[in-house]
Amino acid sequence: MGMKSDIQLIKDGKRLDGRKPNELRDITIKAGVLDNADGSCYLEWGGNKVLAGVYGPKQCLPRHLSNPYKAVLNYRYNMAPFSVDDRKRPGPDRRSVEISKISAEALERVVLLEKFPETMVDVYVEILQAEAGTRCAALTAASVALADAGLPMKDMVTAVAAGKIDGTVVLDLNKAEDNFGQADVPMAVLQHSGEIVLLQMDGDLTQKEFHQAATMAIEASKKVYELQKAALKDKYKERGSK
């Protein structure tokens, strides 16, 4: 964000990768890919490759963190060293700790944690390949993995980002647009209640532009939601036909 460049990000109404302003990148979602996790999901979103695994509810460790009213939800967002161009130093850093915290708070809004007192639910999300918009991809995958694990949830969490490049509000920024654009607004929405459970903004937008970006992201989240739904249902259709 905010890096200066002479690159023209929009040419003849089309973006660098040929997309229209309100077009998403290609998304594929597969549920139940890991045998040893209770629930799992593999997601590809443009150049992003994300693997999510869910464990639990299980005994809460360390014990002093356990809550007698509800389960504790741990979320770990982790980038693989090979996920970016320059090697990423392994381990948690300021950025991933922040993303883990806000994503956990987003999921706490939907998972019915009060049904499992004194336990914990672990959600691990590994970013195998990153190309802008990983926190949205990770949260979308984590939500599918949680449903796959059989945990009770109010709704599915669907995350999409919108932003501004070359003065135009666009959906789902890619890497060049993220680096040289003017704003990026990741957003996580619940489909049925319309609640927004994650909202951040990097860069500047006017009130009107922000409204436009939010409407665009909410509209696009419906498409992502349909893919999440299809991924979960396909898991059993495939097995059933065998």
Binding site: D38, A147, A149, G150, D155, L232
Partner: peptide, 28 residues
């Protein structure tokens, strides 16, 4: 919620049954 009934878990449902129950496909 309101006048509708929503599923909370991933599972199988028989809409003709009363009360409406979801049979989980996975879970501890």
């Amino acid at each position: 919620r309101g006048s509708s009934i929503f599923a909370t878990i991933f599972g199988l449902v028989d809409k003709a049954k009363e009360p409406i129950e979801v049979v989980p496909l996975n879970g501890s």
